[in-house]
Design a protein around this nucleic acid. Structure first.
Lengths: 109, 109
DNA sequence: AATATTAACTTACTTTATGTAACTAAGTAT
DNA sequence: ATACTTAGTTACATAAAGTAAGTTAATATT
């Protein structure tokens, strides 16, 4: 219901980062490959949604899933090149946050 | 339930951009002040949520609301300095999208 | 005078997304 | 045979977003 003149690639990109938790997941993985439970604990996401997000990100070619047949099984998630290419985006967010976010805790109600 | 070592400002910033529609609203306003119905139509957001988002963004000091007492009343929403400072963020997303998003329509199911 | 128009919302209700907690599967170790 | 560990999945509850109709205020039209 709109004659959007917005670049569809841009919109798609926003639709990825838009989703809750996606930014933090990628931020974590920028430090290197990590396993499910580590990501889960470090950003406080629920397993249900993390599972969902990782599948989405894999489908988008942003994350790659590696299975190590140890015992118990070890599975690591790592950024692809496409995923690593998001680092400047997160950096620019960090820069903005440093410059403009106050320290007072606001809860965005 | 996590010992997050993540910068709280960064997290707060992500929590803003994380929310559905926020990125597109700011993108629209980067072109200049716009009224409610214009934003609504241009990005395809529902009035209910747009109203909610604009209030949030105003509370965050990212958007300013200007009332022009014409008839019918004209109200314009414009970015503050803090809001305009998000331009590099959106630019970096655009850059990533140009370099890495395929044209095939994927629906992120 | 009564009705209609317009912008900017709001309200009530439905659908979708996320949170919570318990459960499953595979591969050992006890 | 039972227990332990990781990586999930399932069923159910709550929160967020979508939809469509209604509200308010200031005219403009009939």
């Amino acid at each position: 219901m709109a004659d959007k003149t917005i670049c569809p690639k841009f919109e798609s990109a926003l639709n990825i980062l838009n989703k809750r938790w996606t930014g933090l997941i990628i931020f974590q993985l920028l430090e290197g490959a990590q396993r499910f439970s580590t990501i889960e604990a470090s950003i406080g996401i629920s397993g249900r949604v993390l599972s969902e997000r990782l599948k989405d990100l894999e489908k988008q070619g942003i994350v790659k899933r590696h299975v190590y047949d140890e015992t118990p099984v070890r599975i690591e998630y790592a950024l692809t090149e496409k995923g690593k290419a998001l680092e400047p985006v997160l950096e620019s967010i960090q820069k903005w946050a440093d410059g403009w976010m106050e320290k007072e805790k606001q809860s965005f109600v």
